[in-house]
Write a protein that binds this DNA or RNA. Structure first.
Length: 428
RNA sequence: GCCCCCAUCGUCUAGAGGCCCAGGACGCUAGGUUCUCAUCCUAGUAACACCGGUUCGAAUCCGGUUGGGGGUGCCA
């Protein structure tokens, strides 16, 4: 039988990384087995399930490259099917009406559990059991006539011909109900796999308070989709050897549910940042160019841009870091005043920088080697360490305490810009 | 409270009775490279939760304890 997996989010306006990991695992399982990956939008909460909220889910999936094989099924269109199933269960004696709790709100439809101990196989946790006493009947249609999640979920999985349900740990206990529902509907339940949760440093469910928790935030902050994909896959699964940074094709090839952990995993921002860096450094040149152009529309000189990228690349860990290269393109850029003050402190520094400026102005060729020779010569003549000149010059031209090799930086900026910024030092 | 699940370095994990006085990665620390920052290189640090069994032999099997997580809705 062909594998059919699904991702069934309720659109809330945000896509939590825990949900996205479930989507990724479903996608991987389907792709590994040459099956189908489907999307079901559980949009029965009309308040929150706005078109924008649905679009957020779609965007997140597109960004991470989770392609869907069939048109999405919107649960809100399925109400009649859900109610028909309830009616069928009523007819077959698997359900009954009751004013549960005597609320006076009218009668709800309750599903009659089998009244025996139950068990099911979980691909991650193994054989799970529960006693009949802990499996009470439950509502499948509210007294207001609306179907409940459990009913809708099972009826839709049936309609979509789902073979494997890979979802969060919070659904483990629901699974007994779902299995019973499938059986009462004369259907074979799908295979289940419950993923442990993603937790924070305190072991509690990872939330927005712990940092970026939604897919959209990672995208906005300049992380790479492939890095997030790779990191999320490794959060609870490993291929069994020491491979970590893997191309997607390899992950698809090696993925299996039996290597998924049964315990919660902590999201480690440090390691994710490392992972992101692995990917960003390998990003195609065209991507780097596009990112720089987007950040600095004034970058029109291709050769110049190429030089800047070469200098900045190892210092960019997240696309947002590109903003730190502003001094290459603009005359107004952030200045680290504390560092500048400190570097200008030693007596005579300004004068020596001014002298250096004049020497730079007179240079026959404004290249890194010549600049370095000139600066070192002046430093030696003044009885200083090269660093005593390098730091103030760096602050003067870039506003920053750190950055690319100074002499290459100066060469790329060019004589005019460098001289102007050194002159400007007098104003500080 | 009751039910279910889980338990290897700080973190993510390898390990399915001897290959493990436990391996890799991130982190951290110390060196190296260097004009700074980042990168890079080298080394180091650090774990089988605890107590009992089973066995010639246990991180691996069993029981208990402790700790953690999930569930316990006419929410999803």
């Amino acid at each position: 039988m062909k594998v059919r997996c699904r991702f069934a989010p309720s659109p809330t306006g945000h896509v939590h990384i825990g949900n996205m990991r479930a989507a990724i695992y479903n996608w991987l399982y389907a792709r590994h087995h040459g099956g189908a990956f489907l999307l079901r939008v559980e949009d029965t909460d009309r308040e929150r399930s706005t078109p924008e909220a649905v679009q957020t889910v779609l965007d997140a999936m597109t960004w991470l490259g989770l392609d869907v094989d069939e048109p999405a099924l919107y649960q809100s269109t399925r109400r009649e099917a859900h109610l028909a199933a309830a009616e069928r269960l009523l007819q077959s004696g698997h359900a009954y009406k009751l004013d549960k709790g005597g609320t006076g709100k009218g009668e709800a439809v309750l599903f009659r559990m089998p009244g025996r101990d139950m068990s099911f196989h979980d691909e991650i946790k193994g054989e799970l059991h529960k006693g009949a006493a802990d499996l009470p009947d439950f509502v499948i249609v509210r007294s207001d006539g609306n179907p409940v999640f459990h009913l809708a979920n099972v009826v839709d999985d049936l309609a979509m011909d789902i073979t494997h349900v890979i979802r969060g740990d919070d659904h483990v206990e629901n699974t007994y109900r779902h299995v019973a529902l499938f059986e009462a509907l004369d259907a074979r339940p799908p295979t289940y796999a419950h993923l442990p949760m993603i937790v924070n440093a305190q072991g509690k469910p990872y939330s927005k308070r712990d940092g970026a928790a939604f897919v959209g935030e990672f995208q906005e902050q300049g992380y790479l989709a492939e890095a997030l994909f790779n990191y999320l896959v490794l959060l609870g699964w490993s291929p069994g050897d020491d491979r970590e940074v893997m191309p997607r094709t390899e992950i698809v090839e090696r993925f299996s549910l039996d290597r998924v952990q049964a315990k919660p995993a902590q999201f480690d921002m440090k390691k994710f940042l490392w992972m992101n860096n692995e990917y960003i450094q390998r990003a195609p040149e065209a991507e780097w160019t596009a990112r720089f152009r987007a950040a600095f529309p004034e970058a029109t000189d291709d050769a110049y841009l190429e030089h800047v990228i070469a200098l900045m690349k190892p210092r960019v860990k997240v696309w947002a870091d590109i903003a730190g290269a502003a001094y290459f393109f603009r005359e107004t850029f952030p200045i680290d005043h504390d560092a500048l003050r400190k570097r200008l402190e030693p007596a005579g520094t300004r004068e020596r920088v001014a002298a250096l400026r004049d020497r730079f102005a007179a240079l026959a060729s404004f290249d890194a080697a010549a600049l370095e020779a000139e600066l070192r010569a002046l430093a030696e003549a003044a009885g200083l360490k090269p660093a005593d000149l390098i730091h103030p010059v760096r602050l003067a031209v870039s506003g920053q305490a750190g950055g690319p090799s100074l002499f290459h930086l100066l060469e790329v900026l060019g004589r005019d810009v460098v001289l102007r910024r050194l002159d400007r030092l007098g104003g500080f």
